[in-house]
């Protein structure tokens, strides 16, 4: 215990005596972790957008012309029975025409020439994202299309699947780039801390001269590295949060789709980045000082 008090005292005294070196090291850690955190934030938002779009997954069941009420009720009861499905509404032929007119706006006059209403009646079904897990939407589509009275079933899964494919590819690329970024961060921090340690080689030499064990010399450096790592991570997250706050106050449009709001990193990710700062600072100091000890037998 007495030794640990001494280690911390040495570490804080060293930080105070070598302020410039520590500012440079912490600054480097901040910048590298800021890059990393920005990268994680980007993926957190992509995930969030996919989730939001996933939640809006909808299915339209178009009915044949002149379908009788009995068949309609049967279809309705099947739809209600699908786990996770929520029957949003029934759109009658007339309603469908009204909505089409509304969508066309000033061009609605084009529909005036029609003698009969060609639009089918339909049921609209929505799926919540959590419930979607384990649902084979293609099987449901086939089952419904085989029912009497059902003309066609369309759902928004096809394009979502394609998009999810792209996202999972992005995620793999993200893992690779993130991993490389971590190695780069470790490399940069190791070298920065190594420079800091090198500037204090006299101190290490004198400690070894008076019979200090390797750990007695190393531990304060490891404490300093860990503190730098945590401080760098906290500052990086602070900068990221400020930038996020600035950007999230504006409506972001992606592919013309409005109101895709930005989210900040979840609590777990924040804790992960701070822990990463701690581990990287600790590892970097450990590697740096280990290499340094190899240079001197003292």
């Amino acid at each position: 215990m007495r030794l640990w008090v001494r280690y911390f005292r040495y570490a804080f005294a060293n930080i105070s005596n070598n302020r410039l070196v520590h500012v440079v090291s912490t600054g480097t850690i901040t910048i590298t972790l800021l890059l990393f955190s920005a990268f994680v934030l980007f993926f957190a938002n992509i995930d969030n957008w996919v989730l939001e779009w996933g939640q809006s997954l909808s299915m339209s069941v178009y009915l044949k012309q002149g379908v009788d009420e009995k068949a309609k009720q049967k279809i309705k009861s099947v739809l209600v029975g699908i786990p996770g499905a929520k029957l949003e509404r029934f759109v009658s032929k007339e309603q469908a025409m009204e909505e089409l007119k509304e969508t066309l706006g000033s061009q609605a006059g084009l529909l005036d020439g029609l003698n009969t209403n060609p639009l089918p009646a339909s049921f609209e079904v929505a799926f919540g994202a959590p419930e979607r897990a384990g649902i084979d939407i293609e099987k449901i589509k086939k089952k419904l299309e085989n029912m009497p009275g059902v003309d066609e079933v369309q759902y928004s899964e096809q394009w979502l699947k394609r998009f999810e494919g792209l996202v999972s590819m992005l995620r793999i690329a993200g893992l690779v780039v993130g991993g490389l970024l971590c190695v780069a961060v470790l490399f940069i921090i190791t070298n920065t801390i190594r420079l800091a340690i090198y500037s204090r080689r006299d101190e290490i030499e004198i400690f070894k001269l008076v019979g200090a064990t390797d750990w007695f010399v190393k531990v304060p450096f490891l404490i300093e590295g860990s503190l730098q790592g945590v401080l760098g991570a906290v500052i990086a997250l602070g900068v990221l949060f400020s930038t996020y706050s600035l950007l999230s106050s504006k409506t972001i449009q992606v592919f013309g789709l409005p109101l895709l709001h930005l989210v900040f990193l979840p609590k777990g990710h924040v804790i992960f980045i701070i822990s990463l700062g701690l581990v990287l600072g600790l590892m970097a100091s450990f590697i740096a000082i280990g290499r340094f000890f190899k240079l001197f037998y003292y």
């Binding site: 005596n17 030499e205 004198i206 070894k208 001269l209 008076v210 019979g211 200090a212 064990t213 390797d214």
Partner: peptide, 23 residues
């Protein structure tokens, strides 16, 4: 190595350039 550290605690060393920590 650890034993050497222990031995050094029983040995003093003085250099021409003093080897003091200036801070």
């Amino acid at each position: 190595r650890v034993k050497l550290d222990m031995l050094r605690r029983r040995i003093g060393f003085v250099f021409q350039d003093f080897k003091l920590l200036n801070r």
